[in-house]
């Protein structure tokens, strides 16, 4: 698959086209959305966007890891990880759009 990579710029461009704010303000709004989502997640909240998906924070216990190259044991500290569960609508759209 030779595909494009979209960035914040493409999202602000889409907002700019859709609502007709300035490019600057569109960029600020995209940033603001990402910041508020991140802040909620850092507070430990779930972020649930209907028909898009759910971001949730999970606690991982400490465990003994291993360096796969040297076989050396290294302790892995307990940590918080973020998981994203796509909605059915998103899964269906992605499956349909990428059908070969």
């Amino acid at each position: 698959m030779s595909h494009k990579t979209l960035t914040r710029m493409d999202l602000s461009e889409a907002v700019f086209r859709e609502v007709g704010l300035s490019r600057n303000e569109s960029a600020d709004l995209v940033e603001s959305v990402l910041t508020h989502m991140s802040d909620a997640l850092v507070r430990g909240e779930q972020v649930k966007i209907s028909s898009f998906g759910t971001f949730s924070v999970r606690d991982k216990a400490a465990r003994v890891g291993r360096n796969p190259k040297t076989g050396e044991e290294v302790p892995i500290q307990p940590r918080r990880v973020l998981t994203f569960r796509p909605s059915h609508l998103m899964k269906d759209r992605i499956a349909a759009g990428n059908k070969s």
């Binding site: 979209l6 493409d10 999202l11 907002v15 859709e18 990402l34 898009f52 759209r93 759009g97 990428n98």
Partner: peptide, 27 residues
Amino acid sequence: ERIVNTIFDEITSAMARGDRVELRGFG
């Protein structure tokens, strides 16, 4: 409402085309 919906819709549409969406610092 339209702004927020556009952002999420744009991400889904990109993936439906097989594209990647890279938002540095977020994911």
